[in-house]
Design a protein around this nucleic acid. Structure first.
Lengths: 228, 228
DNA sequence: TAGATTGTTAATCGATTAACAATC
DNA sequence: TAGATTGTTAATCGATTAACAATC
């Protein structure tokens, strides 16, 4: 059913389906895929797959499944990946350099068209075929290159200022890799990736797992004692 | 109230509160913080802050707020950051090197104690003070160094195999930076960070924002025409 | 005591999922 | 027609948030 607004949770899963489908298209010869199979590959529930895909439209065939190529196209279009979104990257440290040459971006049609930093040690050097420019040139370059996505990979203290410069330059979408929250006007989309946060969450569950294992071990010993 | 299981959504926000509190402790002299202030800094709703913190225990004082240092300690403990969790990193490309020297990890008490790869070009080289070892040594090193967190930053095709090696070596927590889903036994915790996925979601919202702006512009012109 | 702010309740909202009629 | 699989409904579950009594 078209024209219902697509729920956030569904949008967040579309890239996962996309990758699973691309993987299928490359490795198997299958022309169609069932919700069951796609769910298995994406690691989710089959009912969820069908519900998610129903937000894009009725692209499946009952008794058959979904046409792989057609579904690929629809998801790509829905995500806006058929369009060109030039991006600028600010903060050329270790992470910035990794991002500048990250294949996953170009494979999905994203093009990083300018790099910025403030350090004299970095400005003027080359990374991934681009010369690093000074942050002061940001506004000018955004206008020239039609940049609409800003990527921040600075230290935490600089992230807010960089975000404000992006906003000032008219950029409406920001991807924030810095380990701090940035505040922007409500018409600007920000998404945050924090490598350390994910590790902290993992630590929580690791601790819980270990606590359970320890408790089980204690129970086992108690049981053995009772029997001995 | 203690001993309710902490909801996933709350666990995911604890690292954000932690960072806000650390930031406060450094920059302001305030000894206490209200849910209102913490919410503002973390970018969430104040009721949500109070509810989240109530899962850890009643650590606030009515009419006063939360003791910053005490709350910091409780969150740190809850997340398991008071313990040492040695980690191993597999896949020493651009991203792997960035992760190996990422400050955000060591600042939170995580220690990457071994690096692995399979390429002869990389094995034996040094990054961040560690010599890269061959993946075949993984099991042995995991046992020796008591490694309990595995980090994957390989190309997508190798991720599943590396995950299986980690599982085989007894690692129960895996952080996956590779752009593919890995399947593991149910007793293993996996968290996934996909840099490209976040960018795709941003693209979706960018497209929507632009569509709205275009529609508004069209309306404006229509209005002007009607009046002209 | 008066003002401030927590901790908790309860209403609401959104996401998940089993079930099944529709239909290829 | 019989078997397979979608698209949708409805029940359920979990997360959010306003409101307010409790209490510093």
């Amino acid at each position: 059913m078209r024209n219902r607004p697509i729920p956030e949770a569904t949008v967040a899963r579309l890239p996962i389906y996309l990758r699973s489908l691309l993987d299928m298209a490359e490795t198997t010869g299958e022309l169609t895929v069932s919700s069951e199979e796609l769910a298995r590959r994406a690691g989710v529930n089959a009912a969820k797959v069908r519900k998610d895909l129903s937000y894009l439209g009725s692209y499946g065939t009952r008794g058959v499944g979904y046409d792989v190529e057609y579904l690929l196209y629809q998801i790509t279009r829905e995500l806006g990946l058929t369009q060109d979104w030039p991006a600028a990257l600010v903060g050329i440290g270790n992470l910035g350099r990794a991002l500048a040459s990250y294949k996953g971006f170009s494979e999905r049609g994203f093009r990083i068209s300018a790099l910025f930093d403030v350090s004299d040690d970095v400005v003027g050097t080359e990374t991934g075929g681009l010369t690093v420019r000074h942050l002061d040139e940001l506004k000018e370059v955004v206008a020239e290159d039609n940049i609409c996505i800003g990527i921040i990979s600075t230290p935490p203290n600089s992230a807010q200022e960089v975000a404000e410069r992006f906003v000032d330059a008219g950029v409406k979408s920001i991807l924030n890799f810095a380990p701090s929250v940035v505040n922007v006007p409500p018409d600007v989309n920000v998404r945050k990736v924090d490598l350390s946060i994910e590790l902290q969450i993992l630590s929580f569950y690791q601790q819980r797992t270990q606590a359970i294992a320890t408790a089980r071990e204690a129970n086992r010993r108690l049981g053995a004692q009772g029997q001995g």
